[in-house]
Amino acid sequence: MGERKVTVAAEVGLHARPAATFVQRAKQASMDIAVAKLNGGDPVNGKSILAIMALDVRQGETVVISAEGDGSEEVLDELAAIAAAP
């Protein structure tokens, strides 16, 4: 299983537009995507806007994005870039 640890840079955290962009890309992937806060908590479905927003990830917090399957490394790189974008 691949994973990326990413510090969220957007002023609004992983909410609103960044969350929508993240979920749109995740939904294009054939594999399951999971997202969790680095400091603990259960992973949530990365393809669910409600689940992502419920994580309440704020600017400067780190998340772990994970996926497994063909093409997962590329998808993880793209999702990490979205989460890290200011």
Rank of each mutant, 00 (worst) to 15 (best):
V8Q: 10
V64G: 01
L55T: 02
L79S: 11
A16C: 10
V75D: 07
E68D: 15
A16E: 08
V57F: 00
L38W: 14
A84Q: 05
A20R: 03
E68P: 03
G71P: 07
A26H: 08
R25D: 12
V6G: 08
L38D: 15
A36N: 11
V8W: 12
G13V: 08
T21F: 06
G13Q: 10
A81M: 06
T7P: 05
R17G: 11
I82H: 10
T62Y: 04
E78T: 01
A29F: 02
M1C: 08
A34N: 13
H15S: 06
N39Y: 11
D77T: 15
V6T: 08
A51D: 13
V8M: 08
K5R: 15
L50H: 05
L55C: 11
A36Q: 14
I49A: 06
R58Q: 06
A19E: 01
E73V: 04
V75I: 14
D32Q: 13
A34F: 10
G60E: 11
V23K: 13
V64F: 08
R17P: 10
V64P: 07
G40W: 10
G46R: 10
V44E: 09
V57D: 09
A36R: 09
G40H: 12
I33A: 02
R58W: 01
L38Q: 15
M31P: 06
E78L: 11
P18M: 05
V57A: 09
K37F: 14
R25I: 01
H15F: 09
E73G: 10
